[in-house]
């Protein structure tokens, strides 16, 4: 069996780091900017970046509806930071015209941990990721304000959920792609293989 193709939504954000992390985890990573490219992948990563920008570009280039359709049809998707926001069914105080793909039954608060001066690193235990805590890099990071019955919180920091799983969907408020530790991406690659 050939390695599954995992797309990285390449509209804006730290695409290169996710491609490197997926490759490091043994997956085949391809950039996705157009509906045709989205149709060809077995899984998708929505990278860190600016969630308002990614949302506006996805809408402008006709990707939002195809993304929603594929998520409804069971496409495995992993979102970090801005990607977590994109996967939330609801965001608190969205900017005008800010749409999400949705799929995870949760409400996310943007920039919840504060501005850049409050951005931080801390060790975080993630359920389903073996080998000890991962180094959580939180950059103007969101947190999960509330979570529905269908979703499961798999990591918490100071009482706030910072990683969530719901079926083939995975989201983290932090950036494992910036650490050189590929365990979270390996977990996602396993989810993609399992869904094939």
């Amino acid at each position: 069996m050939t390695a599954p193709a995992i797309g990285v939504l390449a509209l804006q954000g730290d695409v290169r780091e996710h491609v490197a992390a997926l490759t490091g985890a043994g997956a085949r990573a391809v950039p996705v900017r157009r509906p045709g490219e989205l149709a060809a992948v077995d899984g998708l990563v929505i990278p860190g970046g600016e969630s308002t920008t990614i949302s506006k570009l996805a809408t402008a280039f006709g990707l939002l509806e195809p993304l929603r359709e594929r998520v409804r049809a069971g496409l495995p998707v992993y979102g970090s930071c801005a990607g977590m926001i994109m996967l939330a069914d609801k965001i608190l105080d969205p900017r005008s015209g800010q749409e999400t793909v949705g799929g995870i039954d949760m409400i996310v608060r943007r920039n919840a941990f504060g501005r850049q001066n409050e951005s931080f690193e801390a060790a975080v235990e993630v359920a389903g990721v073996p080998g000890g805590p991962v180094q959580g890099v939180f950059i103007r990071a969101p947190w999960v304000e509330s979570i529905g019955a269908a979703a499961e919180s798999i990591a918490a920091y100071e009482g706030h959920s910072v990683a969530v799983r719901q079926g083939p969907l995975l989201a983290t408020a932090f950036h494992p792609e910036l650490t050189g530790d590929h365990r979270v991406h390996a977990l996602f690659a396993d989810m993609v293989r399992a869904a094939r």
């Binding site: 390449a10 509209l11 804006q12 954000g13 730290d14 695409v15 290169r16 780091e17 860190g48 970046g49 600016e50 920008t53 930071c81 801005a82 850049q116 001066n117 409050e118 951005s119 931080f120 690193e121 801390a122 060790a123 890099v137 939180f138 950059i139 103007r140 950036h175 910036l178 650490t179």
Partner: peptide, 22 residues
Amino acid sequence: PQTPETGTARVKRGMAEQLKGG
């Protein structure tokens, strides 16, 4: 470390990584 570290090189450089393509 269990205490959060702010202002690390990774957090500062990582912030710019989030701006890429923008």
